[in-house]
Nucleic acid binder design. Structure first.
Lengths: 195, 195
DNA sequence: GCATGATACGGACTGTTAGTCCGCTTGGCA
DNA sequence: TGCCAAGCGGACTAACAGTCCGTATCATGC
């Protein structure tokens, strides 16, 4: 029976400082790929060794920062009230989830870009636990509407419509407003679930 | 009136050698991000200076390799016979284009991954001339079917369904066959253009 | 053929990055 | 207060994209 050691106070303090510094740097930098691990360590006021001891590698640090941002959304989906929570009819729930993901990504564009770009060649978007989780949920919801046949594929397509780089392109490159995007998404989801 | 100088014979030879070596390395490496410029130079039997003189940077080299692979498809679309060429009714043409893109990406998975990953943080998929071109064409075709309102958005969504990393995930991660993917895509395009 | 200048070559070099290592420090417990 | 596991930091390594410049090669005028 291994006794689980508490994290030491200084370690906890540093972990928090690193997450905050990274969040801030990713949020303010134009191109998240340009934020180096040294930058983050310096901004957090810790040594590089500390940073890597705590987070292992770049991809994992980014995923942790992202997890913090996404926790409220995930909780809403898993156990919140409608329209995100489990008591929602499948169709509205799919629409609400896609909309909520779009909102989070639009509001945290830089960070989400960092995740999808720099999540590392190791994993990419599709390897992450978050993707797998939300894909599974959507697949099941879609299956109740359209049958299991192509539900998995449809779920991938739905998620492809809210990829961070696509959202960035249509906002920054084409000047679409957030509300126009959400309205297109809403239409698209509705139409996709009509059969 | 500037006289356009011919490319010197040795330069032409080296350009060809580099393109072939790069194509081969990207095609055989599991993770195209791991193919370095030094590797390519060595495989081509040229110095690094030559490689960079000819291609400027990594992203551009990848785009050139990709352009070679894509030339036949582009030509078919621009001036070939139906179902890809301009004499095709819009609806079938959209379906044929998406299918053809999927086939090329499925057949050249590694290279396409290299392009989408490593095209550089500078551009990404959405910055490339190829993306812009095919998006514009699809947008116009979709507009003739559904009106201009959301045609641009729909065109992005159609292209998002044939992104190289998604295709890789469903083939390698989920074991979908190429024909199953193409059939899903076909259904999806048909349904998306129904209104 | 051969001289000559533009063109191209190649690999040593630079700058920057992710990630490692290890001697020193500190927090927590008896 | 003394002990030591846990944690710290920054010098270090390895690998990479991209640059530079002395040397070699090609094409052209004679």
């Amino acid at each position: 029976m291994a006794v689980v050691r508490e994290e030491r106070a200084d370690a906890a303090r540093n972990r928090k400082a690193i997450l905050e510094a990274a969040d801030d740097l990713f949020a303010t930098s134009d191109s998240p790929g340009e934020v180096s691990m040294d930058d983050i360590a310096r901004a957090a006021g810790v040594g590089k060794g500390t940073l890597f001891r705590r987070f292992g590698d770049r991809g994992n640090l980014i995923r942790q920062v992202y997890a913090v941002r996404l926790a409220p959304l995930r909780e809403q989906i898993e156990s919140g009230p409608p329209p995100l929570g489990p008591d929602t009819p499948p169709r509205e729930r799919v629409a609400a989830i896609i909309d909520a993901i779009a909102v989070v990504k639009l509001d945290n564009a830089h960070l989400m870009l960092a995740l999808e770009e720099g999540g590392g060649p190791t994993s990419g978007v599709y390897g992450s636990a978050d993707y797998v989780g939300v894909h599974g949920l959507l697949r099941d919801l879609v299956a109740t509407e359209l049958g299991v046949g192509r539900a998995g594929w449809i779920a991938h397509v739905l998620l492809a419509t809210v990829r961070a780089d696509l959202l960035r392109h249509v906002t920054e490159g084409e000047g679409m407003s957030h509300s126009a995007i959400r309205s297109c998404l809403r239409d698209f989801v509705d139409h996709t679930l009509d059969h």
